[in-house]
Write a protein that binds this DNA or RNA. Structure first.
Lengths: 207, 207
DNA sequence: GCTTGTGAATCTCTTCACAGCG
DNA sequence: CGCTGTGAAGAGATTCACAAGC
């Protein structure tokens, strides 16, 4: 249960999205091989992951979709909901904000930070914007543990350290920089530059 | 050489970025354990990766930085340069454009596509914008193999298929959707929703 | 001493394949 | 039958650990 790989977490998240789409469609049951095909993995993988998530799905005719969504949610989500901070309201931060504000049942962007005075004090996409000086105070007050980092690369390390000092334990990093933080903090990097170089390489390999 | 994992490609890209930073600083040599620490991997990993890339670095006192940058570039990059298309100029696409246009020696965004007439025909960030009708024509004419997909999720699959039909073999997908494409196409997904759920889960695990 | 380069061991993840069940 | 659940095998990736060089 604690020994769950990051890859598995991602897959569960993908399964859930697909299951929700199916539920919306009116489907109520699904076979492992069916979900597997949609998710681009093997049926055995799906079954194992669903088992890992404590979801002893019924064995009569596939899995019950609602039951799966429920089980995955129980595993992935904080039932109390999870407040999230967005750090940096440059082009990327502003573009991502509406994206993340999208109605997620559990994750909610409760504060954004920037030191450009034209942004602070305002409410953008329903999210209040504060100056950096307030960062520590607000993060502690709101009990924020998750932060999305969209500041320029040169300041990313310093800002990340401030986040950690204020109690953040998970950072989704968009800055093209390697963050060096204590083991107690999880980092997920969305590095566009690296991703583009990678896909360019792979594209070239395919003749 | 063909049997090179995606993870390794990413690491090489990271190494190169770090090496460039060091070179900018005036450093000329580096030890594997030094680069490893900055990249957040082990020294053995670095040495193995550098070896894989055909970079028989000299053994006197660490590796020569310029030599490494050269060797990694020779491995990763298309020497002729690689034209890239950006598909979708919504909030995300527009925010990403300047990010990718950033002077990369080999990768260049040569065309952007959107079907909103207020964007087509213009030149944004030095990049010409075309309507979707021109997609196939321009991609073939420019010999584009790499595309960045920033269209809404519901149309992502259809647009991706058009890209593949026009000759694209690598897609960097930002739409929160699983693309189902032939084996001959590489897909790299930057799925924000999944990444955020993942980091929220990991953050919570750290007590 | 300090490196690098690398076979071998280890660890991790994925798939196979089949028992068990409706 | 066709499906799930799962031990065991297999594949891959990472690290160990040490020979060889300066």
């Amino acid at each position: 249960m604690n020994t769950m790989s990051g890859r598995t977490i991602e897959r569960l998240s993908i399964y859930r999205r697909l299951l929700r789409e199916m539920a919306e469609y009116g489907t109520t049951k699904v076979y492992s091989h069916d979900l597997a095909e949609k998710a681009g993995v093997t049926a055995a993988q799906v079954r194992r992951n669903l088992m890992d998530v404590g979801c002893s799905g019924n064995t009569k005719k596939g899995y019950d979709i609602e039951e799966l969504i429920e089980a995955i949610g129980e595993f992935l989500d904080n039932p109390e909901g999870e407040p999230v901070a967005l750090i940096g309201l440059g082009n990327l931060g502003r573009a991502l904000l509406p994206f993340f504000v999208a109605h997620h049942p559990k994750l909610k962007i409760v504060a954004a930070f920037d030191n450009n005075p034209s942004k602070t004090g305002r409410v953008i996409h329903g999210c209040r914007c504060y100056p950096f000086e307030k960062l520590r105070e607000i993060i502690i007050r709101e009990g924020i543990r998750v932060a999305i980092l969209t500041v320029p690369a040169p300041v990313a390390q310093q800002v990340a350290e401030e986040l950690v000092a204020a109690g953040v334990t998970g950072i989704l990093n968009f800055a093209p920089a390697m963050l060096r933080l204590p083991e107690t903090v999880s980092i997920e990097s969305m590095d566009m530059a690296i991703a583009l170089e990678k896909i360019a390489f792979l594209a070239r390999q395919k003749n």
